[in-house]
Computed example of a mutant assay.
Amino acid sequence: MADKKKMICNIVFLILVFTGTLYGVFHGEDLGEIVHILKTVNPLWLIPGVICVVVFIWGESIIIFYMMRTLGIKLKKWTCFLFSSVGFFFSCITPSATGGQPAQIYYMKKEKIPIPVSTLVLMIVTITYKLVLVVIGVTLTILGQSFIKAHLYQVRYVFYLGTALNVFCVSGMLVLVFHPMLARTILVKGLDLLEKMHLMKKKSSRLEKLNASMDQYRATAVYLREHVWVLVEVFAITVFQRFALFAATWFVYKAFGLSGSSAFVIIVLQGTISVAVDMLPLPGGMGISEQLFLRIFLPIFGSKLLLPGMLLSRGLGYYTELILSALLTIFANFTIGRNVEKG
C-alpha cells in the first residue's frame, strides 16, 4: 500500500514538474513558428539520434549481463536489456533517479537472482555511472577553464555545484564500500542523533537493516578487490554508453543543417548538463536541463533554432528514453519471471 502511494506521489510530482517545464519553455513563444521550423529538419539525421538512446539503454544491459556472468549467473541478453529498461524508466519518473534500482532488484528477484547479488551488481553500475560524470566535471574544472569561460561562464556555478555533488556522492559510496565499519559507525551515530532530537522514532529493526546493508557493502568491497580488471572494462563500457546519449544532441544539430561547431564541443556541452543536473531532486533533471540548454547552446544553435533544437535534443535524450523504457517495462512486467515460475 505504501509503495502504491509513493508511486502515485511520484507520478503527480512528475506531472507537476512537466507542466511547469512546458509553461517555462513555451510561455510567450510563437508555437506556429516553432512547428514550422521543426518541419524543416532532416529526419535522416534523427535516426542515429534514436539509435544513440537505444545504445544508452543497451550499454547498461551489457554491463549487467557481463557482471552476472562473472558471478556465475547466466542470463539472456534480452532479459538484461529488460532489466536495464526497467531501471531507466523508474529513474526517469522519480526524483534524483531513486526509483530505478529498487525496481530492478524487484524484477531480478522474479528471475531468482539473490538480492545481495543484484545489489552488488547495481551498486557497481551506479558507481561507474556517476564516476563518468565526476571525470567530466573534475577534468573541466581543473584543466578546462578556458572551455568553461568560452561555453559555460553564465552557468559555471551550477556546473561546479553539480560536480561537487557528484564527487561527494561517489566518494560517499566508495567509503561505504571500502570502509564499511567506518561508514557503519557514522550512520549509527547519525541515527542515534536523529532519535535523540526526536526527528525519528527509535526502532531496533532500523539497526538490523543497517547491519544487513553493511554486509552487502563488504561483499562489494571484496568483489572490487578481486575483480579490478572487470571494473576497468565496466567503466569503459559506461563511458561509451554515456557519451552515446550525449551524441544525440550533435545529430540534432546536423538535422538542422548547421555547421561550424565540432561534435566534440557539442557532446561535451551536453555532458556538462548531465553533470549539473544529475544529483538534483527532479525527475530526469526536468526543468533545469531545458533552462541550461537554452543558455549553453545559444551561440551554437542561434536564437531562431535554439528552442526547436532544445525540443528535439530533450525529446531524444529524455522523452524517447522514457517512452521506450516504459514500453519495455510493460513487456517486462508480463514476461520476466514467467519461465522461472514454469520451471
Rank of each mutant, 00 (worst) to 15 (best):
I288F: 08
W78S: 15
S171T: 04
E290G: 00
K112L: 07
R218Q: 10
T119Y: 09
V155S: 05
N10E: 10
V222Y: 02
N166I: 12
S289F: 00
I136N: 12
F83G: 12
V340K: 03
S274Q: 09
L280I: 14
V121C: 11
R242P: 00
V268E: 05
A150W: 03
V177S: 05
Y23V: 14
N166H: 10
F264C: 07
V222E: 08
I124W: 04
G162M: 14
P308V: 06
Y157A: 04
W78Y: 15
T335R: 14
T21A: 07
L14N: 14
I93M: 11
L199Y: 13
Y153P: 01
I330A: 12
F301Y: 11
M7V: 10
K4G: 00
Q291Y: 00
K189P: 02
N339Y: 00
M181P: 00
V138D: 13
L294Y: 01
Q104E: 12
L269G: 06
K5T: 05
M310E: 11
H179D: 00
S205W: 01
L210W: 10
V230M: 14
R218A: 06
H198I: 08
L292I: 00
L231G: 15
W78E: 13
H227T: 04
F65I: 05
Y217C: 15
E29M: 08
L305Q: 06
I127L: 04
F297G: 14
T238H: 02
V135C: 11
H227C: 05
F90Q: 09
S261M: 08
V230F: 09
V132L: 08
T21K: 01
L161D: 09
M200C: 08
M7L: 10
I105C: 13
V230G: 11
G337E: 01
V239K: 04
E208Y: 03
A263Y: 12
L224I: 02
P283G: 15
P43Q: 03
I288A: 02
A244P: 06
V222F: 05
P299R: 03
C52I: 04
V265Y: 04
L282H: 02
K149I: 03
K6L: 13
L316M: 12
V117C: 11
L207G: 03
R295T: 15
L316C: 13
Y106C: 04
Q241A: 02
G72L: 08
V134N: 11
Q291E: 01
I266N: 09
F243D: 06
D192E: 10
H36N: 04
P283W: 14
S325W: 02
R314M: 11
W58Y: 12
S289N: 08
G72T: 05
K6T: 11
C80Y: 13
L194P: 03
Q101G: 10
F18P: 01
K254S: 07
V41L: 01
R338M: 05
K5M: 01
V132M: 11
T79Q: 15
L292W: 01
I142F: 08
L165V: 15
A221V: 03
V134M: 14
A97N: 06
L182G: 04
G24D: 04
